[in-house]
Design a protein around this nucleic acid. Sequence first.
DNA 1: GTCTATACCTCGATAGAC
DNA 2: GTCTATCGAGGTATAGAC
Lengths: 213, 213
Amino acid sequence: MSTKLRDSRDKPAATEPDSATRERILLEAARLFRHHGYAATTLREVADAAGIKAGSIYYHFESKDQILGEVLDKGIVGVAEAVRQRLAALPADASSRLKLAAAIEGHLWGLLHHGDFTSANIRIYGQIPAAAKNRHRRIRREYTDLWDTLIDDALRHDELRPDVSATIVRLFVIGALNWTVEWYNPQKGSFEDFVKQITTIVFDGTFVKDGPA
Amino acid sequence: MSTKLRDSRDKPAATEPDSATRERILLEAARLFRHHGYAATTLREVADAAGIKAGSIYYHFESKDQILGEVLDKGIVGVAEAVRQRLAALPADASSRLKLAAAIEGHLWGLLHHGDFTSANIRIYGQIPAAAKNRHRRIRREYTDLWDTLIDDALRHDELRPDVSATIVRLFVIGALNWTVEWYNPQKGSFEDFVKQITTIVFDGTFVKDGPA
DNA sequence: GTCTATACCTCGATAGAC
DNA sequence: GTCTATCGAGGTATAGAC
């Protein structure tokens, strides 16, 4: 075995080691941030939920702010990974519609499978200090760029309606998809059926046919 | 003049008098709740923004919690009023599509015209204590009932797609509309054009035609 | 790696002068 | 109707024992 795999002298830097306790802190923090907000959540509550005492958190994290940053990042990364995986599984010549359908399915899957992280992200992103926003912005931007590419692709292949702006479509659709984590109920039907209905609405709308103006 | 119009001995009860200071407190509270969250906003900040001292707030409100309640309510009422007004202006025999279009226009108008109240509502509703939620629930329910009626109406007239659940349509569409307050930019086009594009997407989708499955 | 104990700060709310 | 002054509670973060 190489001694280079993980040198304990190295600082964790960007990718911290994920001990079980550390992960539990992040998970409980996400859950509490989601349901009570960032400022309203105390580290005593997070520690309590994670089964440790408040002071012990500072062995794993430098500050509450750092926990926030990692929770926010995980909210995006979980979704982005699911989407990229779906897209990679498609044949290279897949239609724009097929690509977007795969992206929607992946987005919804990641969103609902990491609900505490994604909902926490959606709910509190608009409320955090500018410094925290700045640190989180790059990872967000990378993901929205992916959608821009998909939508521009559809536009260039004349599949997207010409009478709506591509920017509005992206913002509207992502916003709509994101909000499903706030009301989706897995007990009222299968995930597959849910995805099918959402995709239908996004692609073809809620009405049976193009009606009169 | 009748002495019954406003007897100063009466407690304000449900509808408080709206002094200028009182309204300013609510407006600044909404703005701060929107951008920093409920718990992160201090009454000292609210007072400062309203041009008074923190202690003075308690002449107008019993608690921070009461301010929250009124901010939340205003977020719904402003939207509901705009929608009800649009619907009332329609002829009685208007089609489901026309009624829904009017509701969408009214919803967007109210949403964006009372942005601090509506955005604050959307952002923090999921994070407030259960007691505050319960007090606010009735006014919310009344508004969603209105949408249920409109959508059921479209369903009964065979205008809504039969392959999507009416509940999913309502939740998805309202969620999508609500989130526009988070990204709508009035400098990038007229409100009328914006409404037209959103309505098109909701009714007829983002793609040019019903494509292959 | 987790604990207890605590320093220091800021919050919501109240009291009473003006 | 607004002010100043202040109370008690509870927050993040730190220090040092184990």
